[in-house]
Amino acid sequence: MSLLANDAHYVDDLTAIKQNGRYRQRVFTQIHDKFIHICQHALINFSGNDYLGLSQHVEVKKKAQQAIDRYGVGSTSSAIVSGSHYLIESLEHDMAAFVDYPRALLFNSGYHANLAVMSLIGKNAQTVVADKLVHASILDGIALSGAKLKRYPHQNIDSLYATLQKHPEAKYVISEGIFSMDGDISPLARLGNMGLAKLIVDDAHGFGVLGQSGRGAVNHAGLTFEGVPIMIVPCGKALGAMGALVCASEEFIELLIQTARSYIYSTALAIPVVAALNASLKLVMKGDCLRDKLFENIAFFNQYAQKLGLHVVSHDLTPIRSIIIGDNKRTQNIQSMLKDKGFYVSCIRPPTVPQDSARLRISLTALHDTDDIKALLDQLVYVL
């Protein structure tokens, strides 16, 4: 079949992506416990963000199955038409109470939530300031709002202060709780106490991991709703499912319900997923045994990697480990060698990370044991 004449540039674009080592292939998988099945091969999964293993927890799966039997699969409409449900209300209420915010609102994904929040705050701010490495959905939401975006070098507080002094009209500073590629914790206490702008935190990788009983990076920093008036908690990481909860004031949440296009014009999240999220949140609130196991794995990884002399970019308290390779194709080759040995590790390349910083990104979870981690690190020494 011949290409349409005006599609020729798409071929050129694809060719350039492949030549630069940036071509991404979808991986069709089946996940069970700590394993990911790819092409009928079971690999130990070090690529996902299921930090507490809740996507595989028997109670979480049971609640989703019960919800299918009782309510069916889809919600069938937008939340403001007829797609909302008492399980959604229960999740929102419990989350708000757990993190001590006035109210929470459930979105279909972190992307939906960030588009909504950034579009709304951008309309009322001439300038929005954000860390250089915030998530793409935050940048897209700001762009949609029409606000001016000023980005400060990653974690550079002095540069942020200078930017805010230069742009006194800026009302908001945006950061993440834990940054997803290097696993570094944002200095939220310093950001929240700066007093020159309101702080918004996307805590995708912090909630369930940091803070008292897993309340997240905001709690870990000793901050509250007064210091961080808007917190976004995506549910596809430690909560093991999908969706996102925006935690904020009564008025801000109500305005999102009335105006946020990604909320109004999306079919509400499937009720079995919401049932699973309710179960996951209750398990997080219930105790720290899963977090204890996660931190045990993090500590072992750090100690053994140091013993082997591996240079790993990480933070002692977070489950994200990165090994910077630099060259795109070499990073892909190393990932392939690890797959051949039974390990699946993420291969992260630009534009997700800066040019010449392609990396192996390793995610630790409560599902792993020390033997898994030791075997992976021994193999990394061999392939590097």
Rank of each mutant, 00 (worst) to 15 (best):
I230S: 01
I230R: 02
M231Q: 15
G236T: 00
L239S: 06
L239C: 11
G240C: 07
G240P: 09
G240I: 05
G240Q: 06
M242V: 03
V246W: 01
A248S: 15
S249F: 02
S249V: 04
E250G: 06
F252G: 11
E254K: 14
L255S: 13
L256K: 06
I257M: 14
I257V: 13
I257K: 15
Q258L: 12
T259E: 13
T259W: 02
A260N: 06
S262M: 01
I264W: 02
I264T: 04
S266E: 13
L269N: 05
A270L: 01
A270P: 08
I271Q: 10
V273M: 10
N278A: 05
N278L: 04
L281N: 02
L283Y: 02
M285W: 04
M285F: 03
K286M: 09
K286S: 15
D288T: 11
D288F: 01
L290M: 12
L290S: 11
R291L: 02
K293M: 11
K293V: 13
L294Y: 01
F295D: 08
F295H: 14
E296K: 14
N297R: 13
I298V: 13
I298Y: 09
A299G: 11
F300A: 11
Q303W: 00
Y304T: 07
K307T: 11
K307E: 15
L310F: 03
H311P: 05
V312Q: 09
V312R: 08
V312W: 02
D316T: 05
D316V: 04
L317W: 11
T318S: 11
P319Q: 01
I320M: 04
I320P: 09
R321M: 03
S322L: 00
S322D: 01
I323L: 15
I324E: 13
G326M: 00
D327Q: 10
N328Q: 09
N328A: 11
R330T: 11
T331W: 00
N333A: 12
K341E: 10
G342W: 05
F343D: 05
V345Y: 01
C347Y: 07
